[in-house]
């Protein structure tokens, strides 16, 4: 067993885990944060995407012990005081989700995009988010939602 101490959504968690435990399973099974979904466990679908120290990673391709001493953010961190995050709001308004299974990973990738490249257009959005597979939407409404989300993030940035 390995000692693990990791900040998840701003709260320090500590556990003894089998070192082979995947970060995705640590979040879901040990912490009950089932918002992070597992779709392929070999890094292609993107459903399990979370942020580690602010950068998107596949939680299925990360051992929980690799997150030791780091800070992890999951979909559960997005809404604050009951209010949807502007990215979540944009997905709701633009019908950017259907079954909702790929959505949490996608939102985390968009969160990173908004932080690092909020000015990008539709083609760049498509390129950047090509590691998050959605089988339901055909992507059009997702691109609408991301465009709207980046707009609102930019507006907030301008206002501050």
């Amino acid at each position: 067993m390995a000692e693990l101490s990791v900040s998840v959504n701003g709260e320090l968690t500590a556990a003894q885990v089998d070192p082979r435990t995947l970060l995705s399973d640590y979040l879901r099974d040990h912490l009950g944060l089932t918002g992070t979904h597992v779709g392929c466990e070999h890094g292609y679908c993107g459903a399990c995407t979370v942020l580690v120290d602010g950068a998107s990673v596949r939680s299925c391709l990360t051992l929980a012990v690799q997150a030791d001493g780091r800070s992890v953010d999951t979909v559960e961190s997005l809404a604050s005081n009951g209010e949807l995050h502007p990215i979540q709001q944009a997905f709701k308004e633009c019908h950017g989700l259907q079954c909702g299974f790929c959505t949490p990973g996608l939102l985390m990738s968009v969160l990173e995009l908004a932080a690092t490249n909020p000015g990008c257009g539709r083609d760049e959005i498509r390129e950047h988010l090509s590691g998050n597979v959605c089988r339901c939407t055909g992507y059009h409404h997702i691109v609408d939602a991301v465009e709207a989300a980046l707009n609102s993030v930019r507006e907030q940035g301008d206002g501050s």
């Binding site: 995947l22 070999h42 890094g43 990360t62 051992l63």
Partner: peptide, 23 residues
């Protein structure tokens, strides 16, 4: 184990079964 982006898929698919993983 470096970043794990090649090793973890191999482990998850059980194409690799190392005795030790050295991070």
């Amino acid at each position: 184990l470096a970043g794990g982006q090649s090793l973890l898929p191999m482990l998850n698919l059980r194409l690799a079964a190392p005795s030790h993983v050295i991070d």
